[in-house]
Lab assay of single mutants.
Amino acid sequence: MATGGRRGAAAAPLLVAVAALLLGAAGHLYPGEVCPGMDIRNNLTRLHELENCSVIEGHLQILLMFKTRPEDFRDLSFPKLIMITDYLLLFRVYGLESLKDLFPNLTVIRGSRLFFNYALVIFEMVHLKELGLYNLMNITRGSVRIEKNNELCYLATIDWSRILDSVEDNYIVLNKDDNEECGDICPGTAKGKTNCPATVINGQFVERCWTHSHCQKVCPTICKSHGCTAEGLCCHSECLGNCSQPDDPTKCVACRNFYLDGRCVETCPPPYYHFQDWRCVNFSFCQDLHHKCKNSRRQGCHQYVIHNNKCIPECPSGYTMNSSNLLCTPCLGPCPKVCHLLEGEKTIDSVTSAQELRGCTVINGSLIINIRGGNNLAAELEANLGLIEEISGYLKIRRSYALVSLSFFRKLRLIRGETLEIGNYSFYALDNQNLRQLWDWSKHNLTITQGKLFFHYNPKLCLSEIHKMEEVSGTKGRQERNDIALKTNGDQASCENELLKFSYIRTSFDKI
Rank of each mutant, 00 (worst) to 15 (best):
V218L: 10
V200Y: 13
V200C: 02
Y273T: 08
P249S: 05
D39V: 15
H290A: 11
V108W: 08
D39T: 04
D247K: 12
F283N: 14
V121W: 01
N195G: 06
T329A: 07
L102R: 01
Q287E: 06
V265M: 10
Q216W: 07
E151V: 12
S54K: 04
Q287L: 07
L60G: 00
A198Y: 05
S317A: 02
C186E: 04
C268T: 00
Q216K: 04
I82G: 06
D261Y: 08
C264Q: 01
D261K: 12
C234N: 01
I201F: 14
N195M: 12
L76F: 10
L233Q: 11
R74T: 11
K100N: 15
F258K: 14
A190V: 12
Y272A: 03
N43M: 08
A230E: 14
I56K: 00
Q276H: 13
V108K: 02
S244R: 11
S77N: 06
C186S: 03
K224W: 03
C215L: 05
Y87D: 00
E33F: 01
E130F: 14
L240I: 10
L128I: 09
D184A: 13
C315P: 04
C186L: 08
C186R: 02
D165S: 09
P220Q: 05
K129E: 09
P270Q: 09
S143Q: 09
L64Y: 11
C196W: 01
Y30T: 04
E147D: 08
C311A: 05
K217L: 12
P336S: 06
P246R: 12
C219E: 02
N135H: 07
C311E: 01
Q287N: 06
E97S: 07
N308W: 12
L260P: 00
F285V: 06
T199G: 13
E207A: 08
A156N: 15
S161Q: 14
T199I: 06
L90W: 05
H214T: 09
K217Q: 07
T107W: 02
P316R: 04
E180V: 09
D86V: 01
G333Y: 14
G318F: 13
N195C: 06
E130S: 08
S323T: 14
S98H: 03
S284W: 09
I109N: 00
T250R: 08
I82F: 09
H59K: 13
T221P: 04
N322G: 05
Q299A: 09
C228L: 02
G58F: 00
Q216V: 05
D101T: 10
I139A: 02
G58S: 01
K191E: 02
C255D: 00
G188Y: 15
M125C: 07
E124H: 13
S324Q: 03
L44A: 10
E33T: 07
F115C: 06
Q204W: 06
L332W: 13
N52P: 14
L233G: 08
T140W: 06
R74K: 09
L260Q: 02
D178H: 08
M137P: 01
G142S: 02
N105A: 05
N257L: 04
E168S: 15
T140Q: 09
P271S: 11
L155D: 04
P197Y: 10
I139H: 01
T189P: 06
H212M: 03
T140K: 12
I56D: 00
C243W: 01
L60D: 01
S225E: 04
S296K: 12
P220N: 06
L102T: 06
M83C: 08
V253G: 06
Y87A: 01
E71P: 09
H226L: 09
T320A: 11
F285K: 02
F115W: 04
L155R: 04
H48Q: 14
I222Q: 08
V93S: 01
C234S: 02
E49L: 07
F275S: 05
C335G: 02
A230K: 15
Y94V: 14
A190E: 02
M65R: 03
C293S: 04
K148M: 09
C215D: 10
E231L: 06
K67V: 14
T68M: 03
P104C: 01
E124T: 06
I158L: 10
P270W: 12
R69C: 10
V108Y: 02
R69I: 11
V265D: 03
I158G: 02
Y94Q: 15
T45A: 13
V121I: 03
G37S: 07
R162A: 13
G227I: 04
G262D: 14
C196K: 11
T85A: 05
L233C: 02
F283H: 03
T157N: 06
P249C: 03
Q299P: 10
L155T: 08
H48K: 15
V167R: 12
F66P: 06
D169P: 12
V265G: 03
A198I: 06
K148V: 13
Q287I: 10
D75A: 04
P330W: 07
D177S: 06
C243M: 00
P313D: 07
F283M: 10
V144N: 02
T157Q: 09
D75Q: 10
F116V: 09
L102K: 00
I201A: 07
E314G: 07
I222G: 12
D169H: 11
L233M: 08
I82C: 04
N242G: 12
L136W: 00
C255A: 00
C243S: 00
C268L: 01
P313K: 04
T194A: 12
H212G: 10
G111W: 01
I222M: 07
